[in-house]
Structures are given as C-alpha cells and as structure tokens.
Design a protein around this nucleic acid. Structure first.
Length: 504
RNA sequence: GCUCCUGUGGUGUAGUCCGGCUAAGCAUACUGCCCUCUCAAGGCAGUGAUCCCGGGUUCAAAUCCCGGCGGGAGCACCA
C-alpha cells in the first residue's frame, strides 16, 4: 500500500507524536503547576442546582489538577435579587458536594475598590455618565448612534458621578463604558458599568446605592483575586471582549476566560423563571421537591455527591450543546450506593398468601448479599403478602421460592392464595419472590419522581405516589438511609412512612 | 434579523490544535452468557458511527481549506 511504500522510502515522515489517553478534564494551555487560581462566583439569588455543581466541580478540579487554589466568591452586586438565605444555601450545597475552597469572599465587600476603579475609568475618559432614559439608550444601541452624553467632558462626568451617590434617582444615571457603538458585538456598544439601586443589600443594608453590574464587577474581581483561569458558561462568550477591554483600560492583569456548556437535564429546567411559579402555585412541594434539579432535591432523592462529580467529569469540558443523560448519573450513583444500601423486602398491591404448613416462627435475614451489614429478624406465622404483579402470574401447582425462606407449591388461587411448603433446597430454576409477613408490616408511601416537563409543558403526572408494604425493620432505620428494595429498586428513607424512589 | 458558538453510534464523550499509531477509544443504554437465595452489584461477550452534507488540498483527512445545512446562545441599568 501507499503507507508501506512510505515506510520504506521515507520512514521519517511516519514518526508520530505521542497521543496519550486523557483522564479527567482536558489540560489547560497556559497553566503553571502551583500557580493556577480558579473561582466559583455564584450570585446568591436562589438555591444551588446541578448547573452550580458543574461549575464548582470544574473550578475545583482544575485548581486541584495544577496544585492551585479555588476562590469561592459570592457575586452579590444586585441587592434586588439577593437574600441571606441563598448565601447559606449555596454554601451548604457546596459543602455537601464536597467542593473544598481556599478562600471565601463577597464581591460586595470590595465595593469601595470598585468605586475607585470606576473613578479611574471615568478620569481616563474611557467611561462616562449617561442620563438618557432606558428607551433612548437601547434605541441608540440598536441603531449604533452615539448618545449625546458620550460627548460630555470630564468635569461634567465627574460631577454626574458624584451625583449618582445622592442626587439622582435610580434609572436617572448610569456609568457607561466608552466602547464601540459601531461594534458588531452588541455587548461592546457602550455597555453599562454601574447603576443606582435603592434596595437594602442583605449584607450591607443601605450603605451603598451605586452598584457595579456583572461585567465590571467580575473583571475587576477576577483580576484582583489573582484568578488565572476564569470558567463560565457559554452564554457569556460574547462578553469576553468586554471583560478584556475593561481590564485593558484599567491596566489590570487579565485572567484567561474559558467557556463550557451549561448542564441541564431533559425536562428538568434549572431556570428560576420557570421553577419559581411551580413552587408558588404549589405544583411542587418546594425547592427540595425530588423532581427538581436542585442539589437539595438530588440529595433527598438519594443521589450521592460522588456520583455527581463523576458524572460532571464524564461530560468533560466542551462548548457543544448537550442534553445531559440522567440515566448515566443514575448508573454512577447505583454503583456507588449499591454496597452501602441495606436490602429489604417491599410489596406493592399486596396479595395475601397463606402457607398452611408453615412451621417457622422467626427467620433471620442478611442485610446485604456481600457486605457485612448485619442481620434482621422477621417474625412469621404462615401468613404473608406478596406483590400483586407476582401473584398475577401464578397458577395452581406452580412451585416458587419465598426468598431466604422456603419453597412452596401453590394449592389455591382466589381472594387469597394458599400454598404448602415443599422443601428448602435452593433451586435456581424456580421463581424467587420477595414477601412481607402480614403481622407487623409497615405501610409506606413511595414517591416516584418523573420528568417535570414534557414538550415544555408541566407534566401533571410528574410525581407518582404509591402505597406499599415493607418489613417492620424499616421502622428502625434512620431517615436518610438508602435502601434497596429487592427486585424493586433503590429508595431513600425520607420520613417515618415515606421513601423516595432513587432509581432502579 | 444581526453577531457569536457548536455538529463523532440511541445517549454523553475521547481523538480534532500538531493529518498517518485506531477502517474511530471509553462510558451509558440495549442483548446474551457467567456469578448470585434480587430483575442490583460484579465478570465476560455482542449489537450499534458512510466522524452533519458537498467540494478541495494531500501518497494519506474525523482531523487542514472553501461552501452549505442543522442545533444553541447573545443582542438588559440580571448575573
């Protein structure tokens, strides 16, 4: 072949650079071992969800990969949206995820520094104070015409800047970057840098009323914090030019900004705009409703942080739009919790089964097939429940095994089933069914979360609630225990008489 | 509409920067077998991709170039 000819005549052309199989996230280009600083900058305006988890895990993994540091920074520059409880909720979420950070801070604590930078950028003529109304501004932006305020001189701008702290009302004046009103990138058409918000801040109350907007705050903070690599989701991509321009004009050090695609599950939106009405209208029980993609919901549902991390890493660091496969998360989760989940019997649509020649009053069953998780005792009196769907397929004369107990032959079907013990030999070929003693069985509810939205429509059947019977031993388990109901699936004990279905 | 990003089996990705190691690796899903007093976990095997399409460059293209098409995002005094 052609290749073999090459090998004989020009072997040097075939020498190839080593390509190694990568483990984990792709390498960063300009990353120096020990010097990488990343940051996780959520706004405390809601409960943390799977999207936060992806960002935080990526930030932490990279910091760890290069022996660097992770800064956890609350980007709290809009008092209209932020609440104290969200600061706490996000911190709880991060801790639960096992994300360890080296510093915590709030952007709002640097507000004086940001004012200094604002003054600097106005002084240098790279920003001006605009007093036009909102409509004019957006019209001018669309039509690429410079607003008359942009021609104002320094003394006018400085005077207006001072006035923003007292005289002007919200909406009457904003600081704008002297960008490029003709830019194809609309983010560059003299964007807002600071504005007036008369709202009490959860941390600073009414101390400040001039607040930087996202772009101004993030670029300054990242630079000042020593961030070397700033990761954000793809929708910010057009703002990179702005980010770098602000730092250029301020003559500040520039971190490297990189984007990744946002993580959202099919039919499980993360947006507050969609979730809030559901909570308010009572369509879901709260932000910890197991159908939601919040971290609290995932935890209640029995998803474990290690599984989320594995899952996020399996998604890698890409910009391609993805509809994340929830089943992959479930698979990772199942493998992790399998070894720590206690095995118990559960029966749905119970059908009574009488074993006429039962001679046992008690049986001891192992709590896990491989791990040593102890044993439990079950009292017996020959009367049982088996699952409706198992009972349906039974015929008189069938031989089945009650798991861990004995083999029986069905002698009668009807409102209840009757059977007789045949023997106790383990026979691989006969069906093996789980059972519940009819005395002392525990009644529980099984909450089965389904997909929340189907074709953008709220799925009215998104929460299935089923009644079931389980063993009395269930009552002794702590809330939060992960249980594998044999032949049914994994569930997490959510309260005394309720479990949430985790996955099969 | 304009601008930007993106496109590898059912699904998520590796490989793409620096063209040959790989007629595309891994995970998940599915199927079968083994193990097992579970339809779980574990072990083994299998099905499944004209690398969006069309041209071009080259001895050689998933990888480079050009042109299409599909999907997503941004166009706020929100982050």
């Amino acid at each position: 072949m052609q290749k073999s000819e090459l090998e004989t005549s020009f072997p040097e052309l075939l020498i190839i650079k080593p390509k190694q199989d990568r483990v984990g996230l792709p390498h960063l280009n300009d990353a120096e071992q020990g010097k990488v600083i990343t940051r996780f900058p959520p706004e405390p305006n809601g409960y943390p969800h799977i999207g936060h988890a992806k960002a935080a895990i990526i930030d932490e993994e990279y910091a760890r990969m290069y022996g660097g540091k992770l800064i956890f920074r609350f980007d709290d520059t809009n008092p209209e949206n932020e609440r104290l409880e969200y600061y706490a909720a996000i911190k709880v979420g991060l801790d639960w995820l096992g994300v360890k950070y080296d510093h915590v801070k709030n952007t709002s604590d640097d507000i004086e520094l940001i004012y200094k930078k604002a003054e600097e950028i106005i002084q240098s003529g790279d920003a001006y104070v605009c007093t036009c109304n909102k409509e004019t501004i957006s019209k001018n932006r669309r039509e690429m015409v410079a607003c008359k305020c942009s021609f104002g001189d320094l003394s006018q701008n400085m005077k207006r800047w001072k006035n923003m702290f007292e005289k002007y009302k919200p909406g009457e004046a904003i600081v704008r970057l002297r960008g490029d009103i003709h830019s194809e990138n609309t983010a560059m058409r003299d964007p807002t840098l600071l504005r007036i918000i008369d709202e009490s801040h959860p941390l600073h109350k009414n101390k400040y009323r001039v607040w930087p907007n996202y772009d101004f705050a993030v670029s300054i903070e990242d630079s000042v914090d020593g961030v070397t690599h700033a990761f954000r989701t793809k929708e910010y991509e057009l703002r990179n030019e702005l980010y770098y321009t602000i730092l250029d004009k301020l003559k500040m050090r520039k971190p490297k900004v990189l984007e990744f695609s946002r993580l959202e599950f099919d039919g499980m939106p993360v947006s507050k705009r969609i979730l809030k009405p559901l909570v308010q209208e009572g369509k879901v029980s709260g932000y910890d409703d197991p159908r939601l993609p919040t971290l609290e919901a995932m935890r209640r549902r029995g998803i474990v942080p290690e599984a989320i991390r594995k899952f996020v890493l399996s998604l890698s660091f890409t910009k391609s739009d993805t509809l994340a496969p929830f089943e992959t998360l479930e698979s990772f989760n199942r493998k992790i919790i399998d070894s720590t989940s206690i095995r118990l019997f559960l029966v749905m649509d119970p059908v009574k089964l009488i074993v006429k020649n039962n001679n046992l009053t008690e049986i001891e069953i192992s709590n896990h097939p491989q791990k040593n998780m102890g044993k439990r005792k079950i009292q017996l009196d020959g009367s049982f429940y088996i699952a409706g769907n198992d009972a349906e397929s039974l015929k008189v004369g069938d031989e089945i095994r009650l798991l861990e107990l004995y083999n029986i032959k069905i002698t009668r079907l009807g409102s209840h089933i009757e059977a007789e013990i045949t023997d106790n030999d383990f026979k691989p070929e006969i069906p093996k069914l789980q059972w519940i003693p009819s005395q002392n069985s525990a009644k529980i509810e099984v909450l089965i979360p389904k997909v929340l939205f189907v074709n953008e429509q709220f799925n009215e059947k998104s929460l299935d609630i089923k009644q079931a019977l389980t063993e009395p031993y269930y009552l002794e388990l702590n809330v939060g225990t992960e249980i594998q109901f044999v032949r049914y699936g994994y569930c997490r004990k959510d309260s005394a008489n309720q479990v949430i279905y985790t996955h099969k």
